[in-house]
């Protein structure tokens, strides 16, 4: 019996508190008002209780939001990093590359060691895996096409920097949004390319001897570290291509056709007197396969060829025809044997 009494009281208290809140929130009804008025007059402690509730309620307007579980610092990289990354199916676009006049094999270049990397700064990395080409839209609305096995890094506060700096390993084609106040800088090994709004292509794969910059439109300046061009840039205009040999520390500048600059973004694979070992590396990146070949055996061999959206099988067949290379593909590995002697190219 007593239990029932407690319940009734508890229910009564709930009703009173509903009425109090209605008054505090200006949503009183005639019923709640008369209930509250009656309760307030019942006892002095009731009036005091209401006063306390009112003060606490008003104080509660000042409560601050809690700390989010995930801090803004964790969210922020995604606001820049999640620039729409379009994955292009490689097979659909065929093979792609805009090759510089390349020579020899190269040691891996120490990308990270070249950078004066400040650990307190945070960088965002975008990578095109083997067999993939991706388009990265930067926050400043510049566009970058990343070729297979290439990687770019940029500051997570990209647009807030004095210069729009992008670090590149591999090959990329840039279409840079014009912004004179914020020069667009591409760091690729020894070459630093400064632009103000133009389109150009840079190739700087770690395992290739040559690094190159080719310009489609506009004008860019290229600084070459450890040479006398380290301070005074080499200026390039449309259809200029600068090729830097990392071993010899020399560079050449020559004219290219406009379409050569970004041919690879359209799926065209070009080899021009390209050492065979670099051809293998390119094939490996483009088609996401491993190429097993004796590097010493082919180091004197060079290939000149152009493939327009051709599948791997076609490329391998051409190698057989031109250089008498025997190839066998097992799953994701291509074994290369034979071939004519290349001692007299």
């Amino acid at each position: 019996m007593s239990l029932v009494v407690v319940k009734v009281q508890s229910g009564m208290e709930d009703k009173i508190w509903n009425a109090i809140v209605k008054r505090l929130t200006n949503t009183e009804t005639a019923d709640s008002q008369s209930l509250l008025e009656q309760w307030l007059t019942e006892d002095e402690s009731h009036a005091q209780g209401y006063q306390e509730a009112k003060v606490v309620w008003e104080l509660s307007a000042l409560i601050q939001p809690d700390q989010p579980h995930v801090s803004f610092d964790q969210l922020q990289p995604q606001l820049i990093a999640k620039t729409q990354v379009k994955q292009l199916n490689f097979w659909k676009y065929g093979i792609a590359a805009a090759l510089s006049a390349a020579v020899l094999l190269a040691a891996l270049f120490q990308f990270s060691q070249d950078k004066k990397h400040n650990p307190s700064e945070e960088w965002v990395t975008r990578k095109a895996d083997a067999g993939k080409m991706i388009q990265v839209n930067l926050p400043d609305s510049s566009k970058i096409w990343l070729n297979s096995g290439s990687e770019i890094r940029f500051h997570k506060y990209f647009s807030a920097q004095k210069s729009r700096t992008v670090q590149l390993i591999g090959e990329a084609y840039f279409d840079v949004a014009h912004d004179e106040k914020h020069p667009f800088v591409v760091e690729s090994g020894k070459l630093t390319t400064v632009v103000y709004g133009t389109s150009f292509s840079i190739r700087a794969y770690g395992n290739e001897m040559n690094t190159s910059v080719a310009v489609n439109s506009g004008k860019v300046g290229v600084l070459i570290a450890d040479t006398k061009e380290a301070k005074v840039p080499v200026m390039l205009v449309a259809n200029d291509k600068l090729t830097f040999n990392r071993n010899q520390h020399t560079f050449t500048k020559l004219s290219v056709t406009n379409s050569e600059v970004n041919a690879w973004t359209a799926g065209i694979l070009t080899f021009e007197q390209t050492p065979l070992n670099e051809v293998f590396a390119t094939i490996s990146r483009k088609f996401n396969v491993q190429v097993k070949a004796d590097p010493l055996k082919y180091q004197e061999c060079r290939l000149t060829a152009k493939f327009q959206n051709k599948p791997l099988k076609e490329v391998l067949r051409t190698l057989k025809m031109v250089m008498n290379l025997q190839t066998k593909q097992i799953d994701h590995t291509v074994y290369v044997e034979g071939g004519t002697s290349c001692s007299n190219p």
Binding site: E13, W17, L24, W57
Partner: peptide, 11 residues
């Protein structure tokens, strides 16, 4: 109801 009970609790 939630607001009423919340105020009761806080009070």
């Amino acid at each position: 109801d939630h607001l009423g009970k919340a105020m009761q609790f806080i009070h």
